[in-house]
């Protein structure tokens, strides 16, 4: 659960979002987002019974392409922005479970 009695459980959410926050940021964001959430509470006054959710402004269906392949990037292009690469692969620090 992402909420404690003071609003957002900022540690839980920052962990999900994979952003490390300083204590100062945690405090400031908690306060600011608390205000925003309080404002958003207003939505609870709206009766939405029987209302379908809108996922797309203009609903379309079956938007697809045929299964034909086109040549993509060369390895050089694929890796041109990589912070580190070796053996034509992107290097990442050790992955620990």
């Amino acid at each position: 659960m992402a909420k404690d009695e003071n609003g957002i459980d900022i540690d839980y959410v920052a962990n999900l979002a994979r952003i490390s926050l300083t204590d100062e940021e945690k405090e400031r964001f908690s306060g600011q987002l608390g205000d925003v959430l309080e404002y958003i509470e207003k939505l609870n006054t709206v009766d939405v019974s029987g209302v379908e959710p809108t996922a797309h402004a203009f609903p379309l269906e079956n938007v697809w392409r045929e299964d034909t392949a086109e040549p993509g990037f060369s390895v050089e292009t694929a890796l041109q922005n990589a912070p580190a690469s070796r053996r034509n692969m992107v290097v990442v620090p050790k992955v620990v479970e």
Binding site: I8, V13, Q32
Partner: peptide, 15 residues
């Protein structure tokens, strides 16, 4: 950061 945190929160389990 603020918006990513808020967006993560509103999608998180139970909300």
């Amino acid at each position: 950061k603020r918006r990513v945190i808020l967006g993560t929160y509103v999608l998180s389990s139970g909300y």
